[in-house]
């Protein structure tokens, strides 16, 4: 950790700003999980943490270690890429499962399954 004192002031300020902003985004995402009322609403909250939070924190990490070791560092880009590509899959599965469950329970605030086009007006 003592190496961090070698960081020049401009980089330290920039890294700090990015880190704090990313942490704030992640916190807001978690707060959303706590505060939003319905399950479908809560689907939206984690994406703030994964898009905004992860990207900002990874940028801070790239900048910090690039300046310290005075070379370009790119492997945080892989973290950003994989997090952005994989989170939606989980969220879609959760959303579909919730939709299925609510339709079986015949809750009224959930849209009906669209009728197949082959038999219009058979009822």
């Amino acid at each position: 950790m003592n190496h961090l004192t070698d960081l020049p002031p401009w980089a330290a300020i920039l890294v700090c700003g990015l880190l704090l902003l990313g942490a704030a985004m992640t916190l807001i995402g978690s707060l959303g999980l706590l505060r939003l009322p319905s399950f479908y609403d809560r689907l939206h909250a984690p994406t703030i943490a994964t898009s905004g939070g992860t990207i900002l924190i990874c940028l801070a990490s790239m900048l910090c270690f690039a300046v310290l070791q005075s070379r370009w560092i790119f492997h945080e880009l892989l973290i950003i890429f994989f997090v952005t590509v994989t989170t939606p899959v989980t969220l879609m599965l959760l959303g579909q499962a919730a939709l299925y469950r609510d339709r079986v329970k015949e809750r009224s605030d959930v849209p009906r399954k669209p009728k197949p086009a082959a038999e219009p007006g058979s009822e």
Binding site: A45, T47, G52, P88, M92, G95, Q96
Partner: peptide
């Protein structure tokens, strides 16, 4: 699907291939 779900504020739920409508 990935773009819409990764964007906060929109979540993809279902796509009906026959009617080509997205929920």
């Amino acid at each position: 699907a990935c773009i819409l779900t990764a964007t906060p504020g929109t979540a993809w739920l279902e796509y009906d291939r026959r009617q080509k409508s997205l929920l």
